[in-house]
Design a protein around this nucleic acid. Structure first.
Lengths: 224, 224
DNA sequence: AGGTGTTTGAAATGTACGTTTGAATATCCG
DNA sequence: CGGATATTCAAACGTACATTTCAAACACCT
């Protein structure tokens, strides 16, 4: 069955889990090639460098995800009247869960990797994602903008990044959180359940009323 | 004036900025001692190890912050009727901004460090914080519980961790976000502004209506 | 001033890392 | 089959890291 597996795939499979759990910089090629049961030099032979391996690991998911998201976004944009924010956010659910067909636990792994990409110092990853898929993400921003016309662009910018943080951190700590939740509330936790819990939180946060006072009531400064 | 500065303080000052910007694991003692203009061996002499230096850097802020938070929480708990959620969250603002008197940009540095503590793999830091200050944080959870009596305990658990993720991720990416915001919206971004933008987002997310449907309408599984 | 304990300094230790090399092996195709 | 190409392998390279060592410099005190 699984007799002969491609070396490149063995590397990608080993790397994605290690990267997701330990971060990019704290995962060594020696760990990866050891888990993958391939020679140390194989990474540089097949991918060129560690940096390019990181991109390849993410690309496996991004290609699938972004194509699906692009479809969904275009579909919603074609509708004449603006869409409900909850509907717009819900569009992520199916494409994300379909990543489970790329690999076991693909959804969780991808979201963890995304988190690592933003918190580890990986400038090349931010550039890589924005350069390749910025066009798709712009559609999403446009959709949210249409469903929240009262939100200033700068406020929207911040809230979308707050939301990215919410998702990414939650997924990064998923294991620990799930354990606690199961122990304290005896509820079983899967990735889909977490996503369903996230949606109302995110929708409410993004659409929160804009504070009328742009300056806080009391300032507190050091020095001067 | 600043003629003779304590070696320990020179190390702490240099370390906190480098840790905040580059993360704990990606900052070397050589960088720190070079910026601090002290000998490489000084870190191990004064702090024992890099791990203990990390804790010392955080401790400088945690000691001050947690004492102040404890006061505020106790004060709110003493009030008979439950407090408004926004009020409870707003309690963080002043103690956080007072960290600017611990050091220049203390608030920003501390929050970035906190973010690093949760995203870098620093198990000892999670333990360190919980062990030393878990009692204070429990008061906060109680306050939120009182102000959102309609929220089931499990839902509250998830939403508080969502919120932690929002804050921590935002602070970890603070620099990059601030740059973009300044470029795209030509608005100056300081840490207080970010905190003031966070509050309504967090309050709305935590208090979001609880979805009546506990099971999502469509499932999607890989394999079976 | 002189002796004691604390702090600094330059150098070395051992380990781990990403990457490169060149020979050995496997795979492919006429 | 046989020669060319693609892949694997063990070993080494150069670099960077945290930590240790021990002698020199310093600070403090009677």
């Amino acid at each position: 069955m699984v007799a002969k597996q491609n070396t490149q795939q063995k590397i990608l499979d080993a790397a994605q889990s290690l990267f997701a759990e330990t971060g990019f910089n704290d995962t060594s090629l020696r760990q990866i090639t050891s888990v993958a049961e391939v020679n140390l030099a194989a990474v540089n032979y097949h991918f060129g460098s560690k940096k390019e391996l990181i991109q390849a690991v993410l690309q496996r998911y991004l290609r699938v995800l972004m194509a699906r998201l692009d479809q969904e976004f275009s579909r919603l944009l074609a509708v004449q009247q603006p869409n409900n924010l909850t509907q717009v956010l819900a569009v992520f659910v199916k494409p994300l869960l379909e990543l489970n067909s790329v690999h076991n636990n693909g959804t969780r792994i991808f979201l963890q990797l995304l988190g690592r990409g933003y918190t580890d110092v990986q400038g090349h990853l931010r550039w890589f994602i924005n350069h390749n898929y910025g066009r798709v993400l712009d559609k999403f921003v446009l959709l949210v903008q249409q469903s929240c016309p009262q939100l200033p662009a700068s406020e929207l910018f911040w809230r979308l990044h707050f939301s990215l943080g919410t998702v990414v951190f939650t997924m990064a700590s998923n294991e620990a959180l799930a354990e606690i939740a199961e122990a304290d509330f005896s509820e079983e936790v899967d990735i889909e359940g977490v996503i369903q819990r996230l949606l109302p939180y995110l929708a409410a946060g993004i659409a929160a009323p804009v504070s009328t006072r742009s300056q806080p009531q009391q300032q507190l400064r050091s020095g001067t």
